[in-house]
Design a binder for these strands. Structure first.
Length: 157
DNA sequence: GCCAACGTTGGC
DNA sequence: GCCAACGTTGGC
């Protein structure tokens, strides 16, 4: 049973939805994930066309700011091989990569971001990993009903 | 800026 | 393979 909906975090100071909007083809390599669980989601479970919430962490406001879709098959994250990259991993080799990524493409930037505070108030979203205490996963699966509810909140007047 | 929660590393 | 020490995440 594979997931079709995801949530990915990024700090807008490093890379926010406005950066994605101006990227070539509004697409980017989601580089720099160095957590095995998050990597496994990208490497093993994501399929092209899967839909993704873009979440701004360490930001003001904390919010889901739009949607993206998976735009490639998984492939090794090139930054792990680059000694000049802050994501360089000396234990990774071309023959035996450690880190994988997918390309993501912007689908929609919300006119009205869905605030973390509002998600926390929403009974039907109480199981979202995002608001679970201590949850730090930077890539998370999202349930279909959670996806639908957040989309309603984003588009309500 | 603080710090709780979590993941990783490395000595044993 | 345990676990203490350390580094990071990320909300507050």
């Amino acid at each position: 049973m594979s997931h079709r909906y995801w949530l990915m975090k990024s700090e807008p100071d490093a890379f926010g939805i406005d950066d994605l909007e101006v990227s070539k083809n509004q697409t980017t390599h989601w580089e720099g994930v160095r957590n095995y669980q998050a990597r496994n989601f990208m490497r093993d479970d994501m399929k092209p066309g899967d839909l993704i919430f873009f979440y701004h962490s360490n930001a003001n406001p904390l919010a889901i700011v739009g949607t993206m879709k998976v735009a490639s098959e998984p492939y090794p994250d090139p930054s792990q091989f680059d000694p000049n990259s802050k994501y360089f991993d000396e234990k990774a080799t071309e023959e035996n990569p450690r880190w994988y990524l997918v390309d993501v493409k912007l689908v929609e930037k919300f006119d009205k971001p869905v605030l973390r505070d509002d998600i926390k108030k929403e009974e039907s979203l109480s199981d979202m990993l995002l608001i679970k205490r201590g949850s730090r996963l930077s890539i998370q699966p999202v349930q279909e009903h959670e996806w639908n509810r957040v989309m309603e909140m984003a588009h309500s007047a």
